[in-house]
Design a protein around this nucleic acid. Sequence first.
DNA 1: GTCTATATAGCGATAGAC
DNA 2: GTCTATCGCTATATAGAC
Lengths: 228, 228
Amino acid sequence: MTVTESRTEHHVDTREALLDAAEALFSEHGIQASSLRMITHQAGANLAAVHYHFGSKEGLVRAVFARRLQPLQEERFRLLEACDLSGGVEGKGVEQVIHAFVAPLIRRMRETPDGAHAFAQLMGRVFSEPSEDVRSMLIQELKPSADRFVDALRQLLPHLADKELMWRFQFLAGGMGHTVSCQKMVARFSEGVCGGDPDEMLRYLVTFMASGLRAPATAEPDLQGEPA
Amino acid sequence: MTVTESRTEHHVDTREALLDAAEALFSEHGIQASSLRMITHQAGANLAAVHYHFGSKEGLVRAVFARRLQPLQEERFRLLEACDLSGGVEGKGVEQVIHAFVAPLIRRMRETPDGAHAFAQLMGRVFSEPSEDVRSMLIQELKPSADRFVDALRQLLPHLADKELMWRFQFLAGGMGHTVSCQKMVARFSEGVCGGDPDEMLRYLVTFMASGLRAPATAEPDLQGEPA
DNA sequence: GTCTATATAGCGATAGAC
DNA sequence: GTCTATCGCTATATAGAC
């Protein structure tokens, strides 16, 4: 009740309240562990309201993602189009593309702590989501964006074979996803040192990932330095 | 039944069969979504066997992790001790430390496809596990290892402030965790290009992460290159 | 559109026979 | 050490009054 806040009179919009409550609870406890009873209670709505507005729990899950993912992707595209890809591996384009990919998520974490922040945490987590429904929805929603970013990186890093290029994009996405979705764990592992400021994290992340992306192509096996 | 296979006569070891089944189901569907009924059915055991052997579902979860985590950590430590930390940022120590951290997981994925492979997937996923029980067990189990790796990196990268060093370790851990736990998603995003060979992934990962770790320290804000 | 009441099913856990 | 039977609880979903 206190968490959602919005409805002081009675209900501003039950549908939105349900989405807010579901987002917060999904990110806090996971999708599976968030019951419709918890969600409707936190939203100040009736249990049956979920089925009226979204048809099922699955429909609610889809709606929670769609609401945030579309504007996020649009912002990523806008930033990507503003990147200067002409400088190649030595130009600032590498940093710019990473920034375009990560910053929209970080910005939302900073600006709406109890909305997008929860969503960012959920986004990172949901990649290892066991439900095939959620998985295929994510692919459908994110694949076009991922492809465009890989295309941009291909222009910047033409010396890389496609396979290595795609792996590097995965390392970038994974590093971002981990730090965003596992913030509590990260903070506990670093004893609080890596808590707090998302913008600081973003700067460190851009430095690290840009250097990783710029690395020379990996040589064929046996040149690999393995201890002992 | 067909999955676990082992017990053709009647039961080789119910306890082990339960651990195997739990590991497989946890990694496939998540911990919360794997019921004791599913687990005991797959293990060819009785529902009550879980409570006899492990006391509760929570006890079973702990046992699943403990069985794999202890030998994994020991191998990491052995490899870490063999690393040459004297060469600083320019030496091969950076690659060696990354390798020591990641390779034990990869090796298990390669060698026991239906055991450690499932566990590796579970390991990556469980970092965003909502259950506080699981979270604190993971911290307890992994923190000493993480600290020793951060110490090694500190020796190799003395020019980095501690905060940035720890963030870089998190980016490394996140990139590894993502690629290991989200293999199916990674393969689908790359349309199969990034599937298959774990050793190839390991080589690419070492190249990428070593370059990221070696990056010069991040400058204070406003020097950051941001698009438009 | 929102409510109460309920149907149907699955959950973790336990008692007690064997 | 393994079994059956069952308790107490919660889940999603739906029917029907308002």
